[in-house]
Amino acid sequence: MNRQLKNKLFTYATWIAVVLSTTILFFLFGVILWNGLPAIDLNFLTQASSNFGASGGIIYQIAGSVLMVLFSALICLPIAIGTAIFKSEYLISKKLHAIINTLIYSLNGIPSVIFGIFGLILFVNILGMGISWIVGSIILAMMILPTVTLSTYHSINSIPTIYRESSLALGLTKWQVIRKVLLPQGFSGAITGLLIGVARAIGETAPIMFIATAFSGVAFPSSFSEPVSTLPTHILALAQQATNPDALQNAWGSSLMLVTLVVLFSISALIFRLKHQTISKR
C-alpha cells in the first residue's frame, strides 16, 4: 500500500469515528425530544406530581435537583480551591504530587453507587442525619470534588511564574499574592470545573437514591433534614411503571427536562471558559 493511500484511509477512518459518535449523540437527543416534547407544557413544569407521577407535573423534582446540586457546589468550591492552592503553591515534593494526583483520580473513579452506600452508612445511620437532601448534597460534593479541584489547579498552575515573582518582588506576602493575583485568575477555572461537575451531579441517581430522596408526598423542603424528590430518581420510579402509558410519557418529559438542565450547565461552562481566559493564554 502506498503512503498516500494509507493517508487517505486514515483520514476516512477518523471521519467515520466522528460521524459515529455525533450520530449517537443526535440520535439520543432526537429520541428524547421526540418522546419528551409532547409531555411538556406549562402545567407539567409548574405543578406537583400526583397519582404516583402518572399525572401532574415535576416542579418539585426540578426544584429538588437544582437545590441539591447548588448546595453541593457551595460545599465543594472552598475545599476544591483550598486543595488546588495547596497543590500548586505549597507542595514542592514531586512524590507527594504523584500521591495526591493518584488520590484525586481514585476518588473520581469510585463507582457512584459506592458513594450512596457510604452516605447511607456514615451520614444516615452512624451520624443519624436521616434521609435528607443535605446528605445528598454532601455526597454529590464529594463526587464532583476531583473535577473542580483539577480544573482550579490547572488554571492556577498555568499562571506564569513571572507573575508570582513580580508580585513577591513588590513586597507582597505569599498570601497576598494568592489572594490578589492567583485567585482572581484561577477563579474562572474553578467555576468552569464547578459547572461541569454540577452538570454531572444533577444526573446522578445511584448516590442519592437511598439517602436523599423520596418518591411521592414530597414538597419543597423547609429544613435541611427532609428528603426531596429529584429528576433522575423520578425518572427511575416512572420507568418502573412502564406499562402505564401516562407514567411513561411523564418519564420522557422528565428526561427531556433533565437533559436540558445538563446542557444548560455545560454550555454555561463553555461560555464562562471562553469569556474568562487566564493571563497565561493571552
Binding site: 506564569p160 513571572i162 507573575y163 515573582e165 513580580s166 508580585s167 518582588a169 493575583v181 485568575q185 493571552r282
Partner: peptide, 12 residues
C-alpha cells in the same frame, strides 16, 4: 530592595 525582571510583566 525592589526588582525589575527581564520580561516586563504587567498585571491584567
Amino acid at each position: 530592595i525592589g526588582m525589575v525582571f527581564q520580561k516586563p510583566c504587567v498585571f491584567p
